[in-house]
């Protein structure tokens, strides 16, 4: 009797890890492989690119520290952030986004931005940014450009977002000590999914999970006297060959313009598709 119980226990413990591993092996996040073959005998090696095992290292006091009588740490904190009082509330990439960005730097993987301060990029004051005060020189505005914010607090009031409890119930992953931070992994599942860009859900569905005020697809043309809203699906995207229209046609979440509100759209934005 003992063995089956143990086996079930073991299986139940291994199952989540096993699923993740099954997803990683051979995927883009398996850095032991390329498209043709695996370069590792060790099947667990794929995990360790992001999940760094403890230990390793020199096992003795660094020479200069010995001279200076400084005690070294046994382990370095990984992707840590020690807040100084002044910057405690600074929007910044959280630890799990830093894991992504540590490879998505253009050298190892595609360079991603993290314009969490995008909200602050609308109005520039005369002052320049300063090394230790990144928001110096920016005044908050509602205009978002660049990338979808990450490393920010999920902030439902006024933004047309689902309440935080409702969002959590719908499976939105929020991070940080208060579990209220939007990070890369709020939209993307690094352990692979069936959807493009490792998204948790199909694109429009994913956006509408949080942006509930857009769930019915009516926003742009509402009040303009048109019967329906601007289509967001089911028609070919004139800008991206082979793809259908989606929220991302106008609101590309990375490296383009996120337009809030629409009146601040750059000149000729509509003309990108509506060529006269």
């Amino acid at each position: 009797m003992r063995i089956p119980v143990l086996a079930v226990l073991a299986a139940s413990l291994l199952l989540p890890a096993g699923n993740a591993l099954a997803g990683i092996a051979g995927s883009k996040h398996d850095l032991t492989r390329d498209s043709e073959r695996s370069f590792a005998q060790d099947s667990g090696a794929a995990c360790t690119f992001c999940h760094i095992p403890r230990g390793g290292g020199a096992q003795r006091t660094p020479v200069w520290m010995k001279d200076l009588n400084v005690k070294p740490v046994e382990q370095y904190p990984l992707y840590a952030w020690e807040p100084t009082q002044q910057f405690e509330k600074l929007p910044r990439p959280g630890a799990n986004s830093l894991v992504c960005l540590s490879c998505h730097d253009g050298a190892i993987a595609r360079n991603m931005d993290y314009r969490s301060e995008g909200k602050y990029e609308g109005k520039r004051t005369g002052r320049a940014g300063s090394a230790y005060d990144p928001l110096a020189g920016y005044e908050p505005s509602d205009y978002l450009s660049g990338d979808h914010p990450s490393g920010i607090t999920y902030d439902p009031p006024g933004a047309g977002l689902a309440g935080i409890t409702a969002a959590r119930k719908k499976g939105v992953r929020l991070f940080g000590a208060q579990e209220d931070q939007v990070e890369c992994a709020s939209c993307h599942n690094p352990h692979t999914t069936d959807h493009p860009y490792l998204l948790y859900k199909p694109l429009n569905e994913l956006c509408a999970t949080c942006h509930v005020n857009r769930a019915d697809g009516r926003h742009l043309m509402a009040g303009f006297g048109f019967a329906d809203d601007h289509p967001v699906s089911g028609k070919p995207d004139p800008l991206r060959k082979g793809k259908d229209l989606s929220c991302a046609t106008c609101h590309a979440p990375h490296g383009a313009d996120i337009l809030v509100p629409a009146k601040q759209a750059p000149a000729n934005f509509c003309e990108r598709c509506h060529i006269k």
Binding site: W64, Y76, P77, Y79, A80, W81, E82, L98
Partner: peptide, 23 residues
């Protein structure tokens, strides 16, 4: 990941490290 700089001699012995996470 460590958010630091480690200094080694030519043989690979760790001499020192500096830096930590934050701003």
């Amino acid at each position: 990941a460590f958010q630091n700089v480690q200094i080694f001699d030519t043989d690979g012995t760790l001499l020192y490290y500096f830096g930590t996470g934050g701003l």
